[in-house]
Measured scan of single mutants.
Amino acid sequence: ENVVSAPMPGKVLRVLVRVGDRVRVGQGLLVLEAMKMENEIPSPRDGVVKRILVKEGEIDDTGQPLIELG
């Protein structure tokens, strides 16, 4: 899985990584606010952040691509 998608609709509060960062499975990639709760979205695998497809403050839909890993 190279693309991390939104598991729920919500607002992107914080992006915790930058392009080029090495990430490990379970590491937080970004924080979504949904139903007044903050949810940290973890990396599904080890890899390198290739692209960040959303910006802080954006509203996303379920299934929307958020981050691409390489």
Rank of each mutant, 00 (worst) to 15 (best):
G47K: 01
K55G: 10
L53K: 03
L66G: 02
I67K: 02
P42W: 08
K55R: 12
R51W: 03
V4I: 12
V31L: 07
P65D: 06
Q64M: 11
E38R: 08
E40S: 08
V31G: 00
V4A: 04
G20R: 03
E33W: 15
D46S: 10
M8F: 15
V19N: 05
G57R: 04
E33S: 07
R24P: 03
R24G: 08
M37S: 11
M8E: 06
V12E: 01
L69K: 02
E1I: 14
D46P: 07
P7D: 06
L66T: 02
V15P: 03
V49E: 03
A34N: 13
E58H: 11
K11V: 10
V23M: 01
E40L: 15
S5P: 08
E33C: 15
T62Y: 13
V19S: 04
D21Y: 03
D60P: 15
R22M: 12
N39F: 15
E56P: 12
V48F: 12
E40Q: 10
R45K: 11
E40W: 11
G70H: 14
L53W: 12
D46N: 12
S43F: 02
G26E: 02
V17L: 00
L29Y: 00
V49F: 00
G10Q: 01
G20E: 05
D60Q: 15
D46K: 06
L32A: 00
D60Y: 15
L32N: 00
E38T: 10
G20A: 04
K50R: 12
L53P: 02
L13M: 07
R14N: 06
V12N: 01
M35C: 13
V4W: 00
K11D: 03
S5I: 14
V3T: 11
K36G: 15
G63M: 08
G47E: 02
E58A: 10
E40K: 08
L69H: 01
M8V: 09
P65L: 07
L66V: 05
L66K: 02
L13F: 00
L53Q: 02
P44D: 06
D21P: 00
K50N: 09
K11A: 04
I67T: 01
K11H: 06
L13P: 00
G10M: 03
P7R: 07
G10V: 06
L66W: 06
R45Q: 10
P44R: 03
K11W: 07
R45Y: 13
A6N: 07
R14M: 05
G57I: 05
I41W: 03
V49A: 01
K50L: 13
D61R: 14
V12H: 01
V3D: 04
E1D: 13
A6Q: 04
V12F: 00
G10H: 03
G47F: 01
R18N: 12
V54E: 03
L53H: 09
I67H: 02
R14W: 01
L66S: 03
S43D: 01
V15H: 03
V15L: 11
L32M: 13
R45S: 10
I59D: 09
V15E: 06
E58L: 10
N39R: 14
R14Y: 03
V54S: 05
D61Y: 15
N39Q: 14
E58M: 12
V25M: 13
E56W: 09
L29V: 07
M37E: 11
Q27T: 08
V12Y: 00
I59K: 07
D61N: 12
T62L: 13
V12Q: 00
V54H: 04
D61T: 13
E56F: 09
Q27F: 05
I59W: 15
S43T: 04
Q27N: 04
V49R: 02
L13H: 03
D21S: 07
P42H: 11
G10D: 02
I52N: 00
T62I: 14
I59R: 08
P42C: 14
V48D: 03
R18P: 04
L29P: 00
L16V: 04
L66H: 01
V15G: 02
K55L: 11
D46I: 05
G47A: 10
G70K: 12
L13R: 05
Q27E: 08
I52W: 00
L30T: 01
P9T: 09
L53M: 12
L32F: 15
V17A: 01
T62M: 14
V25L: 13
M37K: 12
L53V: 05
